[in-house]
Design a protein around this nucleic acid. Structure first.
Length: 271
DNA sequence: AAATCGTCCTGGCGGC
DNA sequence: TGCCGCCAGGACGATT
């Protein structure tokens, strides 16, 4: 599932190659999460700018507005000089004079939405609830602690909500909580200031490490050149139910929080 | 305001 | 072996 590292790895893998390209054609496949919001033909002839990332969204600027893209659960973007016939799960093609940018997304939770700018709807609305970027210097223990305060939900769910800090989805939230030694079930408001600082550092650390590993590839994820990530090899708790904790040997436990699996070590992670 | 729940979708897997 | 049913999972939008 593309989380921040996967989206950033994707961005880096095609941003330079596509910048300055001119749109030649747009092809839509099956409907994605939201409609494109503009007549595809209207994009023709426009130059592509520098791709940006905000949270798990990508913003591909065009001369008039731009495209806000989300990879959803199973999406990946591919950019190749040679164009090819679309496959069954290819639902958005941006043909340019430098190559074809294609969104492949079997589950179609992803989206490509045209917006007149990042400051106008629909992009502004979609981005308005997002918390700080994890590598923003303002994201620290104080910020995280303030964000967690007054919330009775489990700290794991507060992290996943993305309104305090963006980018940590299910895998990295589990990993960060393990690194910080915090039980994922602890009510958010019960996380002390020092532990919040530890957790903030853990979130940054795990996302940075995943970025270096090219992201996590469980099934579908590939960067824009088809390269898979390898962070799944370094995960300490995610997907390791029943296996011994790499630190203490206790069996890793799996519970369900907010209809999602949480993996944690009952010994290393305290309330 | 915060929390909960429904919703979207389909490959893959467990069960029989 | 083949079919069926269930589930994961990001995040919005509605509801309580």
């Amino acid at each position: 599932m593309p989380e921040l590292p996967e989206v950033e790895v994707t961005r880096r893998s095609f941003a330079d190659a596509i910048e300055g390209a001119r749109v030649e054609a747009v092809r839509l496949g099956k409907p994605l999460r939201w409609p494109l919001g503009i007549e595809p033909g209207a994009l023709k002839g426009q130059r592509v700018g520098q791709a940006l990332r905000r949270g798990k969204y990508l913003w591909l600027p065009l001369e008039k507005g731009g495209l806000l893209m989300h990879l959803g659960m199973s999406g990946s973007l591919n950019f190749s000089a040679a164009s090819s016939a679309p496959g069954f799960h290819d639902h958005f093609d941006l043909q340019t004079d430098r190559g074809l940018l294609r969104l492949t997304d079997p589950r179609r939770f992803g989206a490509v939405v045209w917006s007149p700018s990042l400051e106008d709807d629909p992009a502004a609305k979609l981005l308005s609830t997002l918390g700080l970027e994890p590598f923003d210097p303002r994201f620290d223990g104080a910020h995280l602690h303030a964000g967690l305060s007054g919330r009775r939900v489990a700290v794991k769910l507060a992290l996943l909500a993305g309104d305090i800090v963006v980018g940590a989805g299910n895998i990295y939230a589990c990993e960060a909580l393990f690194r910080a030694g915090i039980d994922p079930r602890v009510p958010a408001q019960k996380v002390s200031r020092p532990r919040a600082a530890k957790l903030a550092a853990a979130v940054r650390g795990v996302l940075a490490q995943a970025l270096e590993a090219g992201g996590t590839t469980l099934r579908d994820f590939k960067d824009a050149h088809g390269v898979a990530g390898s962070f799944q090899m370094q995960a300490e708790v995610y997907g390791r139910e029943g296996l011994p904790c790499l630190h203490c040997g206790t069996k890793i436990k799996r519970i369900v929080q907010g209809a999602r699996s949480t993996f944690f070590c009952p010994s290393c992670q305290k309330r």
